[in-house]
Structures are given as C-alpha cells and as structure tokens.
C-alpha cells in the first residue's frame, strides 16, 4: 500500500481513509485499462457485443470518480490535511478525472468499432492494436507509480508518451495513404483516424497523471519538455 512507505498516522482511521482513496483510484485505473483493451479487442474480433459491453461498463468508472470526489471533499473537510497528505488528497481529484476521461475515450473507441463492423476490415487496424497495447502498458505503469509513489517510474512513463505520439503520426500517414489508394476506404479509415486520435489523447492523460504523481512526491511541477513529434494535427 502507498502509505507503508511513510510512518503511519497517529490516527489510524486517517490512514484507512487515505488507503481507500488510493484503492478506489487504482480500481479506476484497472477498469479504464480493461475498457481500452476490450474496445480494441471488439474492433479486432469484430465483436459488437463486447463493444456494447464496454459502452455499458463506462458508468461504473463514472460512479467511481464520483466516489473519489466524495472521499476527497470529506477528507479535506474532516482531516484538514497539510503537506504530503494535502497533495495526496488534492491530486486524487485530478487523477480520477484523468482516468474518467481515459475511460470515455475507450467508450468512444468501442462505439466506433461497432460502426467499423459494417465495413470490410482494413489493414491499419493492426496499427490501432499496437498503439492501444502501448497505451495500456502506460496506464498500468502510471497506476503502479501512483500506488508505489515511484517518482522515477512516473517520469519514465511520462517520457514514453512520446512513443504513442510517434505511433499516431505514423498511423495517420498510413491511413491517409489508404484513403488515397481507394476512396471506398475513406469511411473506415476516418473512423480509425479518430480512434488513433483517441488513443493519442489517452497517452496525454497518462502524462497528466505522471505529472500529478511528481507533484505528490516532490511538491513541485514536473519540468522539462517531452519532444513532440514533427506533426501534431488536431483533427
């Protein structure tokens, strides 16, 4: 548990409440990652039932976010936290919002995969699968870094978002090529383009979480710039 690294609070129930907050956020992270994996699996397997299941499950993550918000407000009101406890509780709000957005993007991927199932399979789906696997890995890493309060791991994850950006740029080019080759591919490829963009945005939310973890541990913002790809369109 995250708090094992610190000396325990004199008031044990405070530690228990903080642990519940961390556990809820960790659960949100696991669910968001599963949602992303299932959405992409639904696309690859052309499984609309699985896609519909992803859409239906999103409400669970929304509820967990509300749960985190309630816990944060309660902790602020009743414990009047300071120093690392204050940072810990405040970033709970941010991290849960980032995870909720990640899950929203996963839902959007699932909805598009339902539409895609009406069209013949196009090659670039494998690029989406690769991109998604990387994004899933980054979600897992950043959640581990959060639970373990591992600054170095958070920074490594933060830097690795660059790989997602590079994949996005490469996939963008690939999709444009496919569309130029055969206009019948345009609808499917446009959906894939949005899906790629969604995964790229998931990567950005992972970096937000990594920045929050850095602030939690160091009390200062994570400085420096990740090198962005040569192209950063916002379709």
């Amino acid at each position: 548990m995250a708090h094992d690294k610190d000396t325990a609070h004199t008031v044990k129930s405070y530690d228990e409440e903080l642990a519940l907050l961390v556990n809820t956020i960790a659960l949100m992270g696991t669910l968001a990652e599963t949602q992303l994996a299932n959405a992409v699996q639904a696309m690859l397997q052309r499984d609309s039932d699985l896609a519909n299941q992803v859409v239906a499950e999103d409400v669970k993550i929304d509820e967990l976010e509300q749960d985190v918000h309630k816990r944060v407000v309660r902790l602020l009101a009743l414990r009047q936290p300071v120093a690392i406890d204050l940072r810990h509780i405040v970033i709970g709000l941010k991290v849960s919002s980032d995870l909720e957005r990640i899950a929203d993007y996963a839902t959007n991927l699932a909805k598009r995969s339902i539409v895609l199932n009406q069209f013949p399979l196009v090659n670039p789906v494998t690029g989406i699968v690769r991109m998604s696997r990387l994004a899933q890995e980054l979600i897992r890493d950043v959640i581990s870094a959060y639970i373990e309060r591992d600054r170095d791991r958070a920074i490594t994850t933060w830097r690795r978002d660059e790989e997602v950006d590079e994949m996005y740029i490469s996939l963008f080019r690939e999709l444009v090529t496919y569309m130029m080759e055969d206009p019948r591919n345009i609808t499917a490829c446009t959906h894939l383009m949005f899906m790629a963009k969604n995964i790229e945005r998931i990567g950005d939310h992972v970096t937000n979480i990594a920045e929050s973890i850095h602030f939690l541990i160091e009390g200062t913002p994570l400085r420096g710039r990740r090198s962005k790809g040569e192209m950063h369109p916002s379709p």
């Binding site: 004199t10 008031v11 405070y14 936290p81 120093a83 690392i84 204050l86 940072r87 009390g219 200062t220």
Partner: peptide, 19 residues
C-alpha cells in the same frame, strides 16, 4: 511549510505521523 515542508520531522509533525 504547510504545503511542502523540507524536513522529514516537520512533515511527520504536521501530518500527524509523529511517534
């Protein structure tokens, strides 16, 4: 001091982890 104390003991005292 109250948002980001430098010393371990300060942090322990402020956050109620003293003992």
């Amino acid at each position: 001091i109250f948002t980001n104390p430098l010393h371990r003991l300060t942090q322990g005292y402020l956050t109620g982890r003293f003992g």
